[in-house]
Design a protein around this nucleic acid. Structure first.
Lengths: 249, 249
DNA sequence: ACAGGAATTCAGCAATGCCGAATCGTAGCG
DNA sequence: CGCTACGATTCGGCATTGCTGAATTCCTGT
């Protein structure tokens, strides 16, 4: 990426506004002007002016009772726009059930090839991104038990036992699982594990789409980032302290 | 809210950055520097500088192939932080099933009083925010059929037929439904309808919490805004052109 | 009623953001 | 392959804007 001139590399007020938003997104979620000024080492009128402008756009709001500032609903709208932007054909949430993943939540769009409600659908653990994401962060015995039986080969790209072990190990490192044409030719998926407060992988969240749209030449960064963020967010809702959790032995 | 001095009421660069984000959140989701400059009536180097700073924070990203800019994953994180901020005890998604609403999706947190998985739970249409949100945007016959039978009075605050009609009419105006101590004393809920591409209310999304936390002296703005945004977002995923849709006769 | 602390306002200053001009990079066409 | 056109990016100078110290306002606790 080309570099800006030495003198200035970014716009200071945008940097400061972003710092305010990020400060409000972590740690104590409501902060006063002076607290923010201390944390960011800025003058209080500076922080106040930035907050007023952010508030005008709905990015922060001020709690009437305590005068403290917090993140505002305008961010949610932008966040959702970001998801919509990626035109994800189908978002699925699944939980492990025997040798399968059961879809418990499904958001779909009518113009997509995947326009049928899929809650209840069972997907193979070894041939779906949801399944691999769960396997990667489950006790090792779960994978051992699965591999004790022969894995159905659904397409020419379906992974065998040894290949599945290697891939699951890789997923532990990067957090996001992919599946490309392994269950149905022309259909692929990406998913991230969902952890509970004890750090157990209780499910996974991911997307499914036509292979050429999801991968093209390579997996688009936006999709992987979106899946990671979604998995992180749901895990946080469930009390997970971090994402991803390292798997138990 | 106190007014800034006449001279300046907000910080121009923050305003401009917000305009860029909002432009990218609506209409064509990927825009080039020149397109944004035209839309916002700014100089191209101005837009370029703002985009570079937004990109450094993950709020926008540049598509490698087309050089166009789009919203970035950092916004999703802030959006999720916003949801987390409100410490929503329990987010539920439900669909109508006879005289009930069936919870088909449930996000909960372990430290909450509502820490039990509720998928499959059936709630009364007349005494839940999910139910009222769906009723408000369903064909009138649905409400008529419901009122043809006597409504179980679950608490002293459970609405009767006439009161329910009035309240449902009010929900059509404002979009968001509330239920306060009407099914279980001490427990209340807020919800918004989910529309599909044809404008049908196919479900609702909302939160449930202790009455004193949800309402306090009055319903906190943040919760109503969050519910609206969530309902709007899910509806968009399902192809709804706007939110809320006016109900059919 | 008073003190203390935090938020907000004000006004002056200079640092920063802005933009016209120029350059670079790439795609399309002959 | 060379040329043209168009959009993105860089550069440098200028003045507008963002910033901040001081002051004021507001609110809470004693």
């Amino acid at each position: 990426m080309p570099n800006r001139s030495e003198r200035r590399s970014s716009i200071q007020s945008i940097d400061r506004a972003a710092s305010i938003l990020k400060a409000l997104a972590s740690g104590p979620r409501r902060l006063g002007v002076s607290e923010l000024a201390d944390r960011l080492r800025l003058a209080r009128p500076t922080v106040h002016g930035l907050l007023q402008t952010l508030q005008a756009h709905g990015f922060v709001e001020q709690d009437r009772h305590s005068d403290k500032y917090q993140l505002g609903p305008g961010l949610l709208q932008l966040g959702y726009s970001y998801l919509d932007l990626n035109e994800l054909a189908s978002v699925r949430v699944g939980v492990m059930h025997g040798d399968s993943v059961v879809v418990i939540h499904h958001v779909f769009r009518p113009d997509s090839a995947f326009g049928v409600l899929e809650v209840g659908l069972q997907l193979p653990l070894h041939a779906s991104a949801l399944g691999k994401a769960i396997l990667a962060f489950s006790p090792g015995q779960v994978l051992d038990d699965l591999l004790a039986e022969s894995l159905p080969q659904l397409t020419k790209r379906t992974l065998g036992g040894a290949a599945l072990r290697r891939e699951v190990a890789g997923i532990r490192d990067q957090g996001v699982a992919t599946e490309r044409d392994e269950a149905v030719l022309g259909e692929s998926s990406v998913a991230g594990p969902i952890f509970d407060h004890a750090g157990h992988a209780v499910g996974a969240i991911g997307v499914v789409d036509a292979t050429e749209r999801l991968f093209g030449r390579s997996l688009t960064k936006g999709v992987a980032a979106a899946v990671s963020e979604a998995a992180r967010g749901v895990s946080r809702e469930l009390g997970a302290a971090r994402w991803p959790y390292a798997a138990e032995a």
